[in-house]
Design a binder for these strands. Structure first.
Length: 256
DNA sequence: ATGGTTGCTTAGCAA
């Protein structure tokens, strides 16, 4: 199974790239983030024409997440469930091919110390509790998405420049470690011990031309599922050319 | 080599 995640930064602006990428890579599952559209404006017919089902949890202007899959998704869940008080559409999940797949758009956090940063940390704790309450680390589960955290300095091209930002702050890293401690492995790290691989480059300040990137998009998998991963790639080429997203797809392949 | 934000909404925010 080929399982991918991609923050497209507006599915409306990225529709042509999305369709071309699907046709080229043909993943079994693609988790999307930052749709910036309500479900009615998602290009459902276009992805269906390429053979994909779509589970969409949309929102106007900001946020919005989806899961595309070749086989029918089951047990769809939008947001955090019954007592969800999160006004932002950042989490959707479905069972695909027997795997519980979550597409998550973690809050960015704005500035360290801001209300947005507090929301980010609280959101991450809420996700950890959701996993604890609704899933088991012994089942096949993949938490995919824009996590907005670079796990360690290998994931940052210029650690000194980024160390005090919301993407690298010790509190954000610790919150991600607590989620992982529930029972998730960073599948990319299983296959690449070295640094220098990034999934996001700021549009500003020549981020991509200078390769001033961070690895903040991840496929985290429960351990038995992670052990089945045979390769994890970051499609850096997707950042090139006209009108790229600021993020590129991460593609994990699992043995059957 | 790449490009000096981008997208949504329409002045300012979010990333």
């Amino acid at each position: 199974m080929k399982l991918a995640t991609w923050n497209v930064n507006s599915v409306r602006a990225r529709e042509a790239r999305l369709l071309a990428w699907l046709a080229a890579w043909q993943p079994d599952v693609l988790c999307l983030q930052e749709l910036k559209v309500v479900e009615a404006d998602f290009p459902t017919a276009a992805v269906q024409a390429l053979g994909y089902h779509a589970v969409v949890y949309g929102q106007k202007t900001y946020n919005g997440v989806a899961i595309l899959s070749r086989t029918p998704p089951e047990d769809l869940r939008r947001g955090f469930g019954e007592d969800d008080d999160d006004p932002q559409a950042r989490l959707v999940s479905a069972r695909v091919n027997g795997v519980r797949v979550l597409s998550a758009y973690f809050p960015n956090g704005g500035e360290v110390g801001s209300d947005k940063f507090a929301y980010k940390l609280a959101w991450m704790e809420k996700l950890r509790v959701l996993l604890e309450r609704t899933a088991s680390p012994d089942e096949p589960l993949a938490l995919c998405g824009d996590v907005n955290v670079a796990p360690d300095d290998r994931d940052v091209a210029r650690p000194e420049e980024w160390k005090d930002t919301v993407l690298c702050h010790p509190a954000a890293r610790a919150a991600l470690q607590r989620i992982a401690a529930w029972g998730l492995d960073d599948t990319f790290r299983r296959h690449h011990a070295e640094g220098g691989f990034y999934s996001w480059w700021d549009y500003r300040m020549l981020g991509f031309p200078k390769n001033n990137g961070l690895r903040i998009d991840h496929v985290l998998a429960t351990r038995r599922l992670a052990a089945r991963s045979t390769a994890v790639e970051i499609d850096r080429n997707e950042r090139k050319g006209k009108q790229p997203s600021d993020h590129v797809p991460v593609v994990a392949t699992f043995a059957d």
